[in-house]
Design a protein around this nucleic acid. Structure first.
Lengths: 347, 347
DNA sequence: TTGATTTATTGGAACGTTCCATTTATAGGC
DNA sequence: GCCTATAAATGGAACGTTCCAATAAATCAA
């Protein structure tokens, strides 16, 4: 049907016997054209197999309808959920979000960012890769492009952030463990080049202090934020002279790893060692034992980030308020009372 | 630094004291320009904070450097891995893949496809949403756009497919169960609107027939391809007068659900009922018990799909060979021998 | 020196839209 | 019937690139 060369509005115009301007108007749904004419034009559009060329249009129009989502690890279901939340909002605003994965690689991130800009996106929602240089987003800022950070932030930047209340989440989880009678608490996973790490660890430390629990740097185990990292942390911890009896994990993946390591040593997660996760991914509920975790509502945060972005685009500004999302501790089966202390005082 | 209005190559030309053509040549890395001139131009580019306008360029150039990946369910880690494999290949070819999620919704898929085309993508890699209309890709075909299906296919279409050998995978898994002494085998999850379902179920049926096992439609349980679906299947199955002793599950998610349902009834997966999954997602290895599953190498299939796409773009064709990826059964702990039969003949 | 050849650089015409300023057609008021 | 107001449709100039054909400058062979 369609000829080999791509059809343009001029082809449609010829086909329908009108001018290209009329076709353009129809395409934009303008009320200025007579209904019968519109019908005629739309038929011609069908007939020639026309596809709109947004690149050409953007040459004249102020802004495009695509926004980019730059995500550091797509294989983490947590980020996938974030993406899904954003999509929900954008879809209803007629905006198409394109997702790009940086695989936690700053160089790749640079490329992706460049490509998205060249494509003329209207805005960018970014969860920056670990190890991103402090100035990496300077260019975007000076270009006046709306950018919001999701989940993660960069040490010093004026870019608005949408993230959960990491400090409070860690506080709640720690208090829960203390309430169960644990006195020797560890923190598993993560590393200090992540701002989130400092927030979560900070909440842990503050809770310990407030509740009169001694903390020691020897009970803080840095590690990968994956199952593997969790296994490693647990193994080192159990090898100590005086091992901890409970651990707050940087995220759920680390917690799953920690529980795996326990099993491998013949210990029962929950009963022999209490584990709390962070993020509350879908899997947490179905694990054996079901994981107690800090729920952050990632889809909700995604929606929020999308709304903020929409507002920024609308008001053509590059500034917005940070949004710190509420968290809550979901208690399941992975934290029993401290065995040793339990005998004496915890009934 | 940068002025408010976007800088164009004309601004650069003025700044560097050359013509716009020279700037364009530098941008394309042409060897025709004198090195000193190139340096001067590049400096000017830095100074004015220029960002390349790919939309304008595509107006003249034949094709863009972006290809679209349309995925039906981003929250399934399986698809995320597929995406990661593709990205690896495209990155080294200087192509930027944009991912879009259809959330298993044909309407959304239509929008996403439209948007991607308008954006002028060079090609499309698609895992079609369930319930996609047979003609949904007709337009793309006639437009001469290279399209590859990944993992899933549409009933009748000439679009090349990259997918695992579902038939053989199911065959292997079924034979494994039979080898363990099971004689009453069920198939859990999936539904007949998916081509993949017919392939997997076909392999199951053929293996049963070849190995002399009776099958009955009453042992084929359709259901959602999720944990929830797996739970439902298992519950219905166990309620039967003569329940099966083993099940091949449509995918790993269904298998996890089935095992969950067993536990809920006080039965031990592996010992009391054998379960095999399909896809071998990362989680399978770490589950309790570790899940026996058919590994499909999704990242590898992603790479392959990307290569096929690259070749299609290069040779400006819309045809390519299908590629059926090898599978292999990873035996873990979720399938013990049939208890009842075991007494008698399976030692 | 001259003409031919090579090397660098440059105008200008596309590319497919949008949108402003016009033109043309239709209707209304007198 | 004429003038004005409104509705509908249109031509043409952008927008930021690429690329061809043309020019200008430098090099070479005679």
């Amino acid at each position: 049907m369609a000829s080999r060369a791509k059809a343009t509005i001029l082809d449609i115009a010829r086909e329908a016997g009108v001018s290209k301007s009329t076709v353009s108007l129809v395409l934009q749904g303008s009320g200025l054209i007579r209904p019968e004419t519109a019908v005629k034009v739309r038929k011609a559009i069908e007939d020639v197999g026309y596809v709109y060329n947004r690149g050409a249009a953007n040459l004249r129009k102020a802004h495009s309808n695509v926004i980019g989502m730059v995500i550091n690890d797509l294989t983490n279901p947590f980020f996938a959920e974030l993406a899904v939340g954003m999509e929900r909002v954008f879809q209803s605003a007629g905006i198409v979000p394109f997702i790009a994965n940086t695989a936690e690689n700053p160089v790749r991130q640079e490329e992706v960012l460049k490509s998205l800009m060249e494509q003329g996106v209207a805005g960018l929602i970014v969860s920056p890769a670990r190890g991103t240089a402090p100035g990496a987003f300077r260019r975007l800022e000076t270009a006046g492009l709306p950018v919001v950070f999701a989940m993660r932030r960069l040490p010093e930047s004026r870019i608005p952030v949408i993230a959960p209340d990491n400090h409070r989440g860690a506080w709640l989880a720690t208090a829960h463990l203390v309430g169960k009678g644990h006195r020797r608490l560890a923190f598993f996973g993560g590393s200090s080049d992540l701002v989130v790490y400092h927030e979560r660890l900070g909440g842990f430390r503050e809770a310990c202090e407030t509740l009169g629990i001694a903390t020691s740097d020897r009970l803080i185990f840095e590690g990968e934020t994956s199952r593997k990292g969790g296994i490693a942390c647990m193994e080192t911890a159990l090898a100590m002279a005086e091992p901890p009896t409970a651990a707050l994990c940087f995220n759920d993946a680390v917690a799953f790893g920690a529980m795996l390591a326990l099993r491998k040593r013949g210990l029962e997660p929950g009963a022999d060692f209490a584990v709390v996760g962070f993020d509350d991914v879908a899997e947490a509920e179905h694990y054996m034992p079901a994981l107690t975790s800090v729920a952050v509502d990632s889809a909700g945060l995604g929606e929020r980030a999308a709304h903020v972005m929409l507002k920024m685009i609308q008001s053509r500004t590059t500034r917005a308020e940070d949004h710190i999302g509420a968290v809550n501790l979901v208690v399941r089966d992975s934290c029993g009372p401290d065995r040793r202390a339990g005998m004496g005082d915890a009934a």
